[in-house]
C-alpha cells in the first residue's frame, strides 16, 4: 500500500497490483480566485531542468529563494511562453502562462498566494487566503511503463462515472469504457485489454486505469489476468 499526499493536501492510500508496474507519482490541482486562476502540475523533482534544455531552449531564468524551496521563473527567448516552477527537495510544481511572463506585481501576488509544502509523500499547494479562493480539479496519477492510474476524490470524480450500473466488487463498483484511439491502433488492440479504460469507484475515490501497450513489438501483452488484477486489486481511499 502506498500513501501519497495529493496536491490539495488530501491523504491518498492506494493499493495497486504489481501488474500495473512501478509508478512515478504526479499530480494536478487548480487554484482560482478573483484575479488568478491557475493550474499546477506536480512532478518528481528534476523535470524542471528539461524546460531550458528541451522545451524552451535558451530560456531565461530567475530564481527566488524561499525557505525549503526555490521558485524559478522561466521565459522563452522569444517570449512566446513562460512558467513558474516551485522546486522543493522532493517535488516540483509548475504553472504555465502560455505567453510572456506576467507583470512583477501579478507574479508577486501569485507567489504570495500559493503556499508550497514538500514532503517525500507528495507536495501540497495551498492558498494563503482560502476564503478568497477555491481549489478544485485535484487529481493524483501514477505513471509506469505499463499503466497510467488517475485518482480523484469521489466528489471530483462522480461526474465522470457512467450512468449505468457497474460490476459490484467488495463495496466498489467497476466499469470499463472505450479508450479513444485512431483507427490504426484501434484495429491493432481490438480484443485486448488496451482498448479499455477501467474505472473503479470506492466510497471515497474514483480511480481510472489505462494499460499501456509495451514499446517493443515482441514484448508480452497484458492478458485477462491483468484485467482481473485491476478489477480485484485496485483499492484506493481519499481522505480530506
Amino acid at each position: 500500500m502506498v500513501v501519497r499526499t495529493a496536491p490539495d493536501g488530501a491523504r491518498v492510500a492506494a493499493e495497486l497490483p504489481d501488474q500495473l508496474g512501478a509508478p512515478k507519482w504526479y499530480g494536478i490541482t487548480r487554484i482560482a480566485g478573483a484575479r488568478i486562476q491557475r493550474d499546477f502540475h506536480v512532478a518528481p523533482v528534476g523535470q524542471y531542468r528539461l524546460i531550458p534544455q528541451k522545451l524552451m531552449p535558451g530560456a531565461s531564468d530567475r530564481v527566488f529563494q524561499r525557505r525549503g524551496h526555490d521558485i524559478i521563473l522561466y521565459e522563452a527567448a522569444d517570449r512566446s511562453d513562460s512558467c513558474l516552477v516551485w522546486v522543493g527537495p522532493h517535488h516540483e510544481a509548475t504553472t504555465w502562462f502560455g505567453g510572456p511572463a506576467p507583470r512583477p506585481d501579478l507574479l508577486s501576488t501569485l507567489m504570495g498566494l500559493v503556499r508550497f509544502e514538500d514532503s517525500p509523500q507528495g507536495a501540497r499547494l495551498a492558498s494563503t487566503s482560502p476564503s478568497m479562493t477555491q481549489q478544485y480539479g485535484t487529481a493524483v496519477s501514477a505513471w509506469s511503463d505499463r499503466s497510467v492510474v488517475t485518482i480523484r476524490s469521489a466528489a471530483e470524480g462522480a461526474s465522470s462515472l457512467p450512468d449505468w450500473q457497474g460490476l459490484a466488487r467488495d463495496g466498489r463498483e467497476v466499469w470499463r469504457r472505450a479508450v479513444e484511439m485512431d483507427d490504426a491502433p484501434r484495429s491493432r488492440y481490438a480484443g485486448t485489454p488496451y482498448e479499455w479504460r477501467y474505472v473503479v469507484a470506492s466510497a471515497t475515490a474514483v480511480t481510472e486505469v489505462v494499460l499501456r501497450p509495451p514499446d517493443q513489438a515482441g514484448a508480452s501483452m497484458a492478458g485477462e489476468e491483468t484485467v482481473a488484477a485491476v478489477v480485484d486489486g485496485v483499492r484506493v481511499s481519499w481522505t480530506g
Partner: peptide, 15 residues
C-alpha cells in the same frame, strides 16, 4: 503601500 508590499514579497526572503 501596495507597491512596497509587492516589492517585499517579490524580492528575496532576507533570512
Amino acid at each position: 503601500a501596495e507597491r512596497a508590499l509587492a516589492d517585499m514579497t517579490f524580492g528575496e526572503i532576507a533570512s
